[in-house]
């Protein structure tokens, strides 16, 4: 555990909690892509199956349980409790365009051809692109609530911090996981355009809106 890994995890946790609180406080999930949230729930579920097979640390186990619990709580909010506020008409990204290639790739490029390992690989690849329905929704409506942009910022920051964590681990532990690193790079790059808008607009007190 190093400072980048810890702040990365906390940033991830902050993102998840910001989103839950936003929905709860405003009693609305307007502007939130339910499809991205489904993908994140699939990501956590397929990756953390090792909760059943191996114990790493109390920190590791509790964070996994919290992430999974929050992911399903978010889904419950979007598709059940606050379903009336869900903006499904704008949430039109075709997730099969992500699921099929990602599923295929996880069978082809993995560390070990075993069910749990393939599911882990699938979750890493899927996570790298799971935000696309949300970004697509924002590009379609041309705007995002400021609180939603805070959510996206922390979610993007988390994987960027993991990149520094992997550099650290490579130098000090000789550890590297090529699958996680490449997917993490892709994931971070997808946020770059958003980071630019966040810094140049949201941090200066303006609402994030895209030119028509």
């Amino acid at each position: 555990m190093n400072v980048f890994r810890l702040t990365g995890d906390l940033s991830h946790l902050a993102a998840i909690i910001i989103l839950l609180l936003k929905i709860w406080k405003t009693r609305s999930c307007a502007g939130i892509s339910g499809k991205s949230q489904i993908l994140f729930a699939v990501v956590f579920t397929s990756r953390y199956l090792d909760l059943l097979t191996s114990f790493i640390s109390l920190y590791n186990t509790s964070m996994k349980v919290i992430y999974i619990g929050c992911a399903y709580a978010t889904l419950y909010f979007v598709y059940m409790k606050f379903k009336a506020t869900y903006d499904g008409n704008h949430d039109t990204f075709r997730v099969e365009f992500l699921l099929v290639p990602v599923g295929g790739l996880s069978f082809l490029v993995n560390h070990d051809f075993s069910p749990l390992e393939i599911l882990w690989t699938f979750s890493i690849y899927l996570e790298s692109v799971a935000i696309l329905p949300q970004l697509f929704m924002i590009s379609k409506t041309g705007e995002a609530e400021t609180i939603t942009t805070h959510y996206l910022f922390f979610l993007g920051l988390y994987r960027a911090l993991y990149l520094f964590n992997w550099i650290w681990r490579f130098y000090f532990e000789g550890f590297f996981d090529m699958i996680a690193i490449v997917a993490g790079l892709v994931q971070t790059i997808l946020y770059c355009d958003f980071f630019y808008l966040y810094i140049t607009k949201v941090l200066k007190g303006k609402k994030l809106s895209l030119p028509a």
Binding site: T53, D112, L116, E117
Partner: peptide, 10 residues
Amino acid sequence: EYNVYGHDEL
């Protein structure tokens, strides 16, 4: 044995 690749991260 699962976890031989040390998936100790989240």
